Simulated assay, not measured.
Amino acid sequence: MIGYMRPIKGAFDKEQRKIYQAVYCGLCRILKSRYGATGTLALNYEIVDMLLMIDSICSDKSKWIKRSCSLSPFMWRNLAGLNEQRYFMAAEISMIIANFEIQDNVEDLNRVQDKILLAISDYKLRKMGNQGKDVYEILEKKYLEYMSKERMAQKVFCGFESVVNACGGIIGTIGRLLSEVSGIREISDIEKIFNLWGRWVYLVDAADDYVEDKKYDHFNPWTLKDTPPNWENYVYCLEKEAGTLINYLPVRRYGDLLKQLYVIQLPERRRRIFNKLYEQTWETI
């Protein structure tokens, strides 16, 4: 959940940029209003993309309100979802996911700055309402399951698919939670699509970090798989499966934007990262 679904600069047309910015800025404003300026640091592109998918199939379009920017008060923006429950939940999920990532950094790197960030994040999470605490318990269970699988994989007690599926399960659960609070009927389809995207992000990130992980003897799921060309094919299959499921969704709006994000840009990002990996010396692979 660290920006691998970030839009490619210059790829959107004017209308697509306007829609994306409204969802992004709306979520940013809610994070700031609930958790202060540090809350905006939890904003990530993956959650924005998930909200866009949910918004695209909801019966009612998210309302836009023109307000000043959370970070630059002299700039005015269209903000989506300021009074909508799914945006409030997305803000809580953003904070929870950021907390998990910091926990992971503390465990892997044991840096002082990460420990400080974790203390701040834990304090912010204690300010959540009952809904946020319920969501935390649900996602924490999935996160701990994923961490358990990763530790087992390091000791060769479980394989590649087990670890990857556990990570996908976290994101799939987010899809289910956002679908339920939005009152849409296609909950199982959204959960499957988000599960596939979660696995995609996890594995693309792993490919991006492979050489560095190898150098510092950090765990990387690709060490459980055969050779890099087959790695990329595996990620490509995730894209195709998710794309097939998207075609069956009753998309009411933002179809061109979703196509740009998920059909055009994800493969392009995957190709860039794997090409960089191929350019590394094979001695490190």
Rank of each mutant, 00 (worst) to 15 (best):
D205R: 05
D189E: 15
A91G: 14
V135N: 14
A242V: 06
L177A: 06
L43Q: 09
V211G: 00
P250S: 08
G36P: 03
E150G: 00
G159I: 10
F74A: 10
W231R: 03
N233H: 11
N165H: 10
D134P: 00
L139T: 06
I8E: 02
W197F: 15
I30F: 00
T281Q: 11
V135W: 01
S121Y: 07
F219I: 07
G255N: 14
R151Q: 10
L52A: 05
L118G: 04
L277P: 07
I246Q: 11
R67S: 06
Y35N: 05
A91I: 08
V263S: 10
Q103H: 05
T40A: 05
V48H: 06
G81E: 07
I57V: 14
C28A: 03
L249R: 04
P229A: 06
S148A: 11
M50Y: 13
R185Q: 15
N165E: 14
I96D: 02
I96A: 06
Y24Q: 00
K155Q: 13
G26R: 08
Y143Q: 14
L178G: 03
A119Q: 13
F88E: 15
F160R: 10
P229V: 08
N165T: 04
E180C: 03
Q85F: 01
M1D: 11
D122G: 01
D217I: 15
I174C: 08
Y234G: 04
D189A: 15
I2A: 06
I8Y: 01
G129A: 06
A119E: 15
K133Q: 13
I54G: 02
I102D: 05
S68C: 09
E241S: 09
R176S: 11
Q16H: 07
Y4W: 05
K259W: 02
Y210C: 07
D205P: 03
L41K: 13
Y202N: 08
Y202F: 15
K192C: 10
E232A: 02
G243N: 15
A90T: 11
T173E: 15
R111M: 12
K155C: 06
E268V: 09
Y35Q: 00
K66P: 00
G172M: 04
I190N: 04
V235E: 10
S72C: 08
D55R: 05
G3V: 12
S162F: 07
T223W: 01
F160H: 09
Q21D: 11
